[in-house]
Write a protein that binds this DNA or RNA. Structure first.
Length: 423
DNA sequence: TCTGGGGTCCTAGGACCC
DNA sequence: TCTGGGGTCCTAGGACCC
């Protein structure tokens, strides 16, 4: 059996843990730049606030209902996520962290134990240890565990745990599950299936395998099998990322090269850090910038450039150098830029390194510098040491006017050392 | 007149997830 | 005025190989 444990309204719940006066009140959390609603407490959902709605459109609703609004605080949510996962790990050794607020559990070797009792104990303990309410679905496949999880979340009398372990329960649950609510069925597939008169997950399972294969390919066939109780998705072992992206919308529109350069340098440095973290090197770096596509009355510009690196690298200074060169080649005067980003790809493991016969860079030395920098930043707080090109102005910085404190991970005062000095 | 069979790699586009 | 960020997988078609 597979379990899926999912935190209820995760970001909103994190804000509540350190501010219990919010309990019972509508709470929403906004995306970066205070853009869209990305988490809602149940009270906020009841007010009809939709997921993904731009915040400015909700101004009246928020004011008239005294909705508590927060900017997203990923440092806090990341730390709370760790705490949840650690607690779960103390019960089930084989788990796959699927997202910041979800974890799959492989419930093997628990045959002698009553699943319901075990599940309720996990749910109770996580909530007691972390303050985060969670729900657990248990079923023979991951897709069915997702279905079970929705029921556990929706109906109070389940006490946070719903188990699908017989064909009767499976049929009943699937008949009550809209086709669009199935894991792996998004908007497009949902529309297509509705067209064929399939409105519930159960309807879908009643089609023949060959029909599903023909209509939705192997992707649909797997979902079909999973819903019928045959596992197609196993527990996955985390592997190194094949591409890494850092991009942000700017807090205000930027027209000058300088602040955009600073932003791009920061994005490149962030990619480099993520690469080093997973012991990888990137062979290709891509930079993009664009104006605000929603501002249809203003001149639009979108461009990107792909740069093949001479030698695969995870060195911040080198990635910044190439990223800024790329930016120079695509930046055009006369536009109000809204967003930029850096994506690194063709990622390889750091050993063995395929070098370049004519490489003149002292890679050994720069590796050491990066290591020292990472160690300092880990000990004394993020961005304590950075590359000078990352700058200090942060004109590009995000808008997050309603940020809660980093309750669990307070940083010391910032001390910046210019990179040249260390090198 | 009649022209095989079995592969790989790459890319762009489309779908999905949180 | 104000609309997020970061990923993965699959498929079809074209180019190429023997």
């Amino acid at each position: 059996m597979y379990g899926l444990l999912d935190c209820n309204n995760f970001y909103a719940s994190c804000e509540r843990v350190f501010n219990p006066s919010l309990n019972g009140k509508p709470v929403v959390v906004l995306s970066n730049n205070d853009g869209c609603v990305i988490a809602r407490s149940s009270e906020a959902k009841a007010l009809g606030i939709p997921m993904g709605e731009p915040a400015y459109k909700l101004k009246d609703l928020i004011e008239s209902n005294q909705v508590h609004v927060f900017s997203s605080n990923y440092v806090l949510y990341g730390d709370m996520s760790h705490r949840v996962m650690n607690t779960v790990a103390s019960f089930v050794p084989d788990m796959e962290i699927y997202s910041i607020d979800e974890v799959f559990l492989l419930l093997e070797g628990f045959e002698k134990i009553d699943m319901k009792t075990l599940g309720e104990k996990i749910v109770r303990t996580v909530t007691r240890n972390t303050g985060i309410p969670v729900s657990l679905g248990i079923a023979p496949t991951k897709t069915l565990a997702k279905v079970a999880n929705k029921f556990a979340k929706k109906h109070k009398n389940y006490k946070g745990v719903c188990i699908i372990d017989t064909d009767e329960k499976r049929e009943k649950a699937l008949k009550m599950t809209g086709i669009g609510d199935v894991w792996g069925i998004g908007r497009q597939y949902s529309k297509k299936l509705q067209y064929y008169n399939i409105s519930t997950a159960w309807d879908f399972t009643q089609r023949t395998k060959s029909w599903v294969r023909h209509t939705m390919g192997v992707v649909g066939e797997r979902i079909w099998m999973e819903l019928r109780g045959t596992p197609c998705f196993e527990m996955e072992i985390p592997s190194a990322k094949k591409s890494i992206c850092t991009s942000r919308s700017f807090g205000e529109r930027l027209t000058e090269m300088a602040p955009i350069s600073e932003a791009v340098a920061n994005f490149a440095a962030s990619c480099a850090e993520k690469l080093r973290h997973q012991h990888s090197l990137a062979s290709v770096i891509m930079v993009f910038i664009h104006t605000n596509p929603f501002a249809t009355n203003q001149p639009q510009y979108y461009n990107q450039t792909v740069i093949q690196l001479p030698v695969p690298t995870n060195d911040s200074t080198e990635l910044i150098y190439f990223a800024l060169n790329g930016l120079k080649s695509i930046f055009k005067e006369g536009y109000r830029y809204k967003k930029a980003g850096v994506i690194v790809s063709e990622i390889v493991h750091e050993r063995p390194l395929q070098g370049d016969l004519f490489d003149t860079r002292d890679r050994e030395k720069f590796n050491k510098v990066m290591r020292v920098m990472d160690n300092l930043n880990e000990s004394f707080g993020r961005q304590k040491v950075k590359i000078a090109a990352q700058g200090f102005d942060r004109k590009w910085k995000l808008k997050n006017e309603k940020l809660s404190p980093c309750f669990t991970t307070k940083l010391d005062d910032v001390l910046v050392v210019k990179a040249e000095k260390i090198i």
